[in-house]
């Protein structure tokens, strides 16, 4: 029983991080209807930039963190302007493939700059694990969870109350109407990319802290697809809840199914769940349901 609770707590903590990355996907999808498959590479890049700032520039963590966020912001703007804007109105395959191409470029460049070797973060957070009485949360996961939750809340508040956030929601709801109300849809698109990139680099830093960084860390970005499909592609709340559910399910699979088939099931679980959701309820828990019948 103890181990079950322990696994669930670990799952919850991992899920928080998944939720944050999923938020990055959803922010971009909601405003621009683009599913950014290069998200995992954004994450890795964020982690690498933060690590370099910490080790090479000897910056304190908060400075490195701010620097990384600025980098993400710039990256989001540049990518939206150079790559995504020419493709507005193109068929969906072009848009998806362009983000895959972008991911490949980023991955290759990171490989050139940082080499494929595996690195670990210096200790940023106090290493003491949290003892809950019935379970132990390792420090990395705990702080990751806290970061993820704070990040999510900040994004939610921006979305809910700030002028920009309202403009973004308006655009997501109806582009034509938003345009006629004087909202600059271009600006909103750029901002969405910038926010999405920021959410994913925070996720990258957190994951880098927990399990170390390598060029191949970006594969987690594909796992997070299960989270957003479960939550609904355009639902922020769904992304967070989906994160927790997938986090827990993944860890439970690791506990119960892995011994049966000899390993590997944990990494596979999100994809199996993904297929099941797509078969049963493709718009997810809270996604907008589009009915199309002939």
């Amino acid at each position: 029983m103890d181990i079950l609770i322990q696994v669930i707590v670990t799952g919850l903590a991992t899920g928080g991080v998944y939720g944050l990355i999923a938020l990055g996907f959803v922010l971009i999808y909601k405003a621009t209807s683009v599913l950014n498959l290069a998200m995992g590479e954004f994450m890795t890049l964020g982690a690498f930039v933060c690590l370099t700032a910490l080790l090479q520039l000897k910056a304190p963590f908060y400075l490195a963190f701010i620097l990384t966020l600025l980098m993400a912001c710039a990256l989001g703007f540049v990518i939206e302007r150079l790559i995504l804007r020419p493709l507005i109105g193109e068929p969906i395959i072009s848009v998806i493939m362009v983000t895959i191409g972008l991911g490949l470029i980023l991955k290759g460049l990171m490989y050139m700059i940082w080499t494929p070797s595996f690195r670990t973060f210096p200790e940023i957070f106090p290493p003491k694990p949290l003892l809950l009485g019935f379970a132990v949360v390792p420090s990395g996961l705990l702080w990751g969870f806290i970061f993820a939750i704070i990040g999510t809340i900040i994004f939610l508040l921006i979305f809910k109350f700030s002028r920009t956030g309202i403009a973004m929601r308006a655009t997501a709801n109806d582009q034509q109407a938003a345009l006629s109300m004087g909202i600059s849809v271009r600006w909103v698109f750029a901002l969405a990319w910038c926010f999405g990139a920021m959410a994913s680099v925070i996720g990258g830093i957190v994951i880098g802290n927990i399990s170390g960084i390598s060029v191949y860390m970006g594969d987690i970005g594909l796992k997070v697809l299960a989270v957003i499909i479960l939550g609904g592609l355009d639902s922020i709340g769904g992304a967070i809840l989906g994160g927790f559910i997938i986090g827990i399910l993944e860890n439970l699979t690791g506990l119960y199914i892995d011994p049966l088939i000899g390993g590997g099931a944990k990494g596979m679980a999100p994809f199996i769940i993904l297929v099941i959701i797509l078969m049963v309820r493709p718009y997810g828990l809270f996604g907008k349901e589009l009915i199309e019948r002939v």
Binding site: I83, M97, V98, G101, L102, L104, I105, K107, G108, M112
Partner: peptide
């Protein structure tokens, strides 16, 4: 890593 960069660039 050039292979990936070249593929990515070609696609984009």
């Amino acid at each position: 890593p050039m292979k990936e960069v070249v593929f990515g660039l070609l696609i984009v």
